Amino acid sequence: MIRGMEQHLLNVVDVEATCWEGQPPPGQVSEIIEIGLTVVDLASLARVGRHRVLVRPRRSSVSGFCTELTGLTAREVAGGLPFDEACRLLAAEHRAGERPWASWGDYDRLQFTRQCRAAGTAYPFGRRHTNAKAVFTEARGLPKRPGMARALELAGLPLEGRHHSGADDAWNIAALVLTLARSGNWPCEQTR
């Protein structure tokens, strides 16, 4: 890839994690089971890559509630990568440590931080993170931060795919990022 083009790329990330209708069962913790990543070219204002990484949970299992919400089954994620390998893949194939990145809210960044710390795994991302939900809220002058599906409605954009699928949500968040960029509301330098 041409170095100049790389400077305009942004990784939009959305994760899905093990979850339960109430509290986690004893001994289980919420763990990332899917990483959705859409690459956005801020120069051409286009989504240029769509990726999905399944992650095998180590300290939890996929509940029926989780399958209903995300569409992910225990069998499906059992074939995923171990978390540390998924982090290495993000760094190697998606330049996660070099490219700025964005997520809808801070949940994804904090979940990676917690899980990397608990697993003793190197954090795969760099420091240039943008909370797209905060940028959208400020650009629209909204009194409170909307969820992604509501933000799509407000922007007049369709919800593509399944809500609570990491790959589909990253794709949809990228559409919101591009709407912000087209209107001049996306920050030029992404920071935490």
Score class of each variant (00 low, 15 high):
Thr67Tyr: 03
Val77Phe: 07
Asn172Ile: 04
Asn11Lys: 12
Pro158Leu: 05
Glu6Thr: 13
Asn131Ile: 10
Gly161Glu: 00
Arg3Gly: 02
Thr73Val: 13
Arg56Glu: 02
Glu16Phe: 02
Arg50Pro: 00
Arg117His: 15
Asp14Thr: 13
Ala167Thr: 02
Asn185Asp: 15
Leu54Ser: 01
Glu138Tyr: 06
Met1Thr: 15
Val77His: 05
Glu98Val: 14
Ser183Pro: 08
Phe125Gly: 02
Trp101Asp: 09
Ala102Asn: 02
Leu154Arg: 11
Gly80Phe: 04
Ala132Ser: 10
Glu85Phe: 01
Val62His: 06
Gly105Trp: 04
Met148Ile: 08
Pro124Cys: 05
Arg50Val: 07
Leu157Gln: 08
Glu76Ala: 14
Ile32Glu: 00
Ile33Cys: 09
Ile32Arg: 02
Ile35Glu: 09
Gln7Cys: 11
His51Tyr: 15
Val40Ile: 11
Ser63Tyr: 04
Leu110Phe: 03
Leu89Ile: 00
Val62Tyr: 07
Asp108Val: 02
Phe136Gly: 09
Arg52Asp: 04
Arg128Trp: 10
Gln111Asn: 01
Ile173Cys: 14
Leu54Ile: 00
Leu54Tyr: 04
Thr179Ile: 00
Val15Leu: 09
Leu45Asp: 14
Glu93Val: 05
Gly161Ser: 00
Ala17Phe: 09
Glu76Val: 03
Arg50His: 15
Leu72Asp: 00
Leu90Lys: 06
Phe83Arg: 03
Thr38Pro: 01
His163Leu: 05
Ser183Val: 11
Gln115Phe: 04
Gly36Val: 01
Val48Thr: 14
Gly105Asp: 03
Leu10Ser: 14
Asp108Trp: 05
Gly64His: 12
Glu189Asn: 06
Asp168Leu: 07
Glu160His: 13
Pro100Lys: 07
Gly22Trp: 02
Glu160Tyr: 09
His164Met: 04
Arg56Asp: 01
Thr137Tyr: 02
Thr18Val: 05
Val77Cys: 08
Thr38Cys: 15
Thr191Ala: 13
Leu159Lys: 12
Glu138Ser: 12
Ala122His: 01
Gly80Leu: 04
